[in-house]
Simulated assay, not measured.
Amino acid sequence: MMIDQFLNYLRYERSASPQTVQTYEEGLREFESYISLRDSGLSLQAVDTDLIRDWMEGLMDKGNSASTINKKLSALRSFYRFSLKRGLVEKDPAHAVTGPKRSKPLPQFLREGEMDRLLDQFEWNDDFNNVRARTILILLYEAGLRRSELTGLNDDDVDFNAGQLKVTGKRNKQRIVPFGRELADALRQYMTLRDSQFDDNNGAMFLDNKGGRMTGSQVYATVHKYLSMVTSLKKRSPHVLRHSFATAMLNNGAGLESIKNLLGHESVSTTEIYTHTTFEQLKRVYKEAHPRA
């Protein structure tokens, strides 16, 4: 009866969609069945917080995702808020219950061997498109730039003498990123070829084939094309190269604080996800290599 009252409230007072009403009803009926199996004499009015937590733990044990459980909990919270306002219950047992955190997908990255194969073994020629594409790939991989940071890069941001880039990141926050000889050589070759083809670049580092500043979508298309040649990853975006940069740095002994500063993260907690990435990689290597894994 209580559930029916709530569903009618959703339909006629809140004008909720049929899909929303159905989703809420399924979750609430499932919870109602759960408490009747626990105790045939137990009613929705007598439910306490611990019982709701037990229900959620059972859902997790059955393999339900955090997203699914949170949807069911949301239905239960709405139901008990409604019931409390209408005087159908004396307290709201769902108010203090927090749902499980959704697990964030680990960042995808290319292995060092895949990047070596792309940059060193692929047959690059000396035309403008090839030189520009290779320079973009090296820059993203060796400096860990975001796509927007690359498209916003100007000639004045490159200091060849000091071997460093001035990068403008999110909220116009600037950071300095060092670079080595390979990237310096690639940038010089690209800039020489660019300047021979276009009279004026208006200060922009990367130009499209018409002489304008490259857009983010153009950079994406370039990266996607060449990553597709060496990896089967579903994601083949510029951000994958940023992840690859961070993972390679961590695998080769760089500290989290240093990687945080190079990436321009606000907090080291954001950078810590790469420790999970490298551990997952370590587990795969272990399972592939150990005879009794």
Rank of each mutant, 00 (worst) to 15 (best):
L110I: 11
N209M: 12
L282Y: 11
P93E: 08
R86C: 08
L139R: 00
K283G: 09
V223E: 00
F279P: 05
E90Q: 13
G41M: 12
A75N: 02
K71P: 05
D50A: 07
I3K: 02
G216I: 03
A75V: 10
Q5Y: 04
L262C: 05
Y286Q: 08
D116R: 12
K173W: 10
K210Q: 14
R38V: 15
E272D: 13
S33V: 11
K85N: 08
N251L: 08
G169Y: 00
I136G: 00
I69F: 01
D50I: 11
Q22I: 15
N251D: 13
K104L: 14
L110C: 05
R77V: 10
Q5H: 10
L119T: 03
H239Q: 08
D116C: 11
I259R: 01
T68C: 02
D185Y: 14
R117V: 09
L110Y: 00
K85T: 05
P178I: 04
R134Q: 12
L263H: 01
E280F: 03
G144S: 02
P100F: 08
Y24T: 09
F6S: 00
M229W: 07
E257D: 09
S217K: 04
W55K: 03
W124L: 07
D126E: 14
D4C: 04
A46R: 10
G144T: 01
L150P: 03
D199F: 12
Q218L: 12
Y190A: 04
S43T: 13
S83C: 14
R292G: 08
Y190N: 04
G212T: 08
T20R: 00
F82Q: 04
F279W: 07
N201E: 12
V97Y: 03
G99F: 03
I52R: 02
A94K: 01
T277M: 13
F6L: 01
Q45E: 15
L76Q: 00
S258A: 15
A293Q: 15
T271F: 06
T278V: 15
G216C: 03
L207P: 08
L241R: 00
N201K: 12
A204M: 11
S237I: 09
